[in-house]
Structures are given as structure tokens and as C-alpha cells.
Simulated scan of single mutants.
Amino acid sequence: MKNIKRLATAMCIMTFMFSIAGCNMIEKTPEAIANSTVAVVNGEKITRGDLDKNPYTMQLLSQAKQQYGEDYEKNEEAVNTIKSQKEQILEDMITNKIIEQKAKELKLLPDEKKLKTDMNNQIAQIKKQQFGNSTEQFDAALKAQGFTEDSFKSMYLSQLREQQMQQKVSDSITKNIKITDKQIEDYYKANQDKYTELPNKMHLAHILVKTKAEAEKVKTRLDKGEDFSKVAKEVSQDTATKNKGGDLGTIKYDDSQYDAQFMAGAKALKGGEISDPVQSSFGYHIIKCIDKVKYPVKPLSKVKDEIKKQLESDQKSKLVSQKLQQWKNAASITKKEKNIM
């Protein structure tokens, strides 16, 4: 009797173990992976398949194969990079899902018939302009990127739908924005450097150090008459300019490559003047303005429309960003990061 009970117990355990193994096997099939949930937004699922079919994910994985090889999944650095970027892509998909839900609620979904017409017209233009209407070349280019014509059209239609939906929602949010003449005039007065006949420019040199105390010591040495170039070669931590005495060459006022705080400090200087310590994201600078060329400012009448468009764009971006954050804060969002990879 005891042996029968032991056998029955063993059979139960084996059955349980096989059921677990079976579940694990099911979870590991491509279909089950694709159907696994990576996020739920107000009750609507985003699956692993949705995430993996996202064009940005496909581009990410293509780049990973080029950089790390076909077996990139065995490379820890590659896996960590992909996971981090897929998390950001998922975050964008969550935002897009919220926009889609709001578009449905506000009856702002694009017309599907028009979408397909737009898609076919745009793809026809791509084939004509980039492939000389050669179907063979077009198909070869799609294949190289892992697409068939049908899968490419599906992806393209999805992106077009998303773009038009976002535009409709954005237009709805920002429809009451109005820019006044006073706002235009105030912006013009505060940003005249942007509206000169030619971009203003300045010939600069700088000395970069880590701390404000170090920068103050540098300024003291310069105030006592030491040569700027000599001090820069001794102490500057900018390896690209150190051996040139800190010389940065001629920089236009509208050059976006430079830190905004650095540029503000440089613009405030007169020709031949040396700044007090200026903090940027790189450390502390002592800036020397070797020379400066400033051009006449265009009259307001010539740039009024341009400024109006800029202010409209800025206000729209701000308002849409605020509204999206408001919707996101109010949404019920659950993320399942373990299913991302």
C-alpha cells in the first residue's frame, strides 16, 4: 500500500514537472514571445511583437548585427545596449498609444482610405526618385533591410497613420494659440543677434579647468599680465586647443555646437576683453575675445513673419508637451520589462 502511495506521489510530481517544462517550452516559442505583454496602457496591450516590429527596433537590431555580428545576443555589451534602447522605444510607443486613444476619443483618427492612397503615392515617388521606377532595384533594397513589399507597406502605412494622427491631435490641442504683435516685438528686442544681415562672429580663445577656484587662479594670473596663450598651454584641459594657446578660431554667434552658457559668456565680451570664470557642462572657462565682427540688425518688418512662425512653433511644442504629460500622468500604465528581451 505504501509503495502504491509512493508511486502515486512520484507520478504527481513528474506530471507537475512535465507541466512546468511544457509551459517553459511554450513560453520560448517565437509565437509566445511575440504575444508576451511588454506594457498595458489603459487596458490596451503592447506586445513584444509590436515592439520588435517597430521600425526603430528593427534599425537597432540591424545595427547590432553589423557591429557585433549575427550572434550579438551572446555579447553582454550588445544586449545591455539593446535593452536600454528598447526601453526608450517602448516609452515612445506608450506615448503614441495614449495619443491614439485620445484620437479615438476626440474622433480625430485619419481616414483609412485616404491613408492608403497617400501611402501608395509616396511609395511610388520613392520608387521613381531613388530607383528610377525599377521594381527589381526597389525589391532588392527592401530585401537588404529585411522587408518584403507587403511588410514594407504595412510598416509604412502604420507610420503614416501615426504621423497623421499625431498631427491631428497636435492641431486640436494648439488651435487657439495666437501670437500678438507685442510678443513679436519683445522677442525681436531680446534676440537681435539672430536677425543680423549676416551672422555676427567672434574670434575666441579659452582656458578650460575643472573648478571655479582653478579658474579664478587663472584669471588672477592673466590680470597680472601673464600671456593668455602661455597660461593656456600650461593649465588648459581642452586637449584640442591647449597646444594652440586655447585658440578656438572664428565662431558664428548662431553656432549650436557650443554650450549655451559658454556662448552667452563669449557674446558679452568686447574685442580684446577676457571674461571672469564661465561655467559650462564641461567645467569652467576663462574666455578671451580676440576680435568681434557685428553686422546691422534687420528691421522688424523684414523678420516679423519669421518670428511669428518661431513663436507659434515654440508655443505649440510647449503646449503639446504639457498636454501629453498630463494625459500620461492620468493614464494607467503597467510595464513588464522582463519581456523586453
Rank of each mutant, 00 (worst) to 15 (best):
L7V: 14
A8I: 15
A8W: 11
M14N: 07
T15N: 02
F16Q: 02
F16P: 00
F16R: 04
M17T: 14
F18L: 14
S19L: 12
A21I: 01
G22W: 00
N24G: 11
K28L: 00
T29Y: 00
T29M: 00
P30T: 03
A32E: 01
I33S: 00
A39T: 06
N42R: 04
R48I: 09
R48S: 06
R48H: 10
N54F: 10
Q59C: 03
Q63Y: 08
A64V: 14
K65E: 15
Q67F: 09
Y68N: 07
E70A: 12
E77K: 13
N80A: 11
T81I: 14
I82C: 01
K83Q: 10
K83V: 12
S84K: 10
Q85H: 04
Q85T: 14
I94E: 01
N96D: 14
I99L: 06
I99F: 06
Q101R: 03
Q101S: 05
Q101C: 04
E105K: 13
L106C: 08
L106N: 09
K107P: 02
L108Q: 03
K114G: 04
D118T: 08
A124S: 12
A124V: 00
Q125C: 06
G132R: 09
T135F: 03
A141P: 03
L142G: 05
G146D: 09
E149G: 05
D150V: 15
F152L: 05
K153D: 05
Q159N: 12
L160N: 02
R161C: 07
Q163L: 10
Q163K: 13
S172T: 14
I179K: 01
K182S: 11
Q183F: 03
D186R: 04
Y188H: 07
Y188A: 09
N191R: 11
D193L: 07
K201T: 12
M202I: 15
L204T: 01
A205H: 05
H206L: 05
D223A: 09
G225L: 06
F228C: 08
S229G: 10
K230Q: 13
K233S: 09
V235L: 02
V235D: 01
S236H: 02
Q237I: 11
D238G: 01
N243W: 11
G245H: 02
G246T: 00
G246H: 06
L248K: 13
D254W: 03
D259Q: 06
D259E: 04
M263C: 05
A266L: 04
K267H: 08
L269S: 04
G272M: 07
S275Y: 11
D276V: 13
D276L: 06
S281H: 07
Y284V: 03
H285F: 07
H285P: 02
H285T: 12
I286L: 04
Y295F: 14
P296I: 15
V297G: 03
S301R: 10
K304S: 11
I307E: 04
K308R: 06
K309P: 03
Q310N: 08
E312V: 11
D314C: 02
D314Q: 15
D314E: 14
K316W: 00
K318E: 11
Q322D: 14
L324A: 04
W327C: 05
N329G: 12
N329R: 11
A330D: 14
I333C: 04
K335P: 05
K336D: 05
E337D: 13
I340P: 01
M341Y: 13
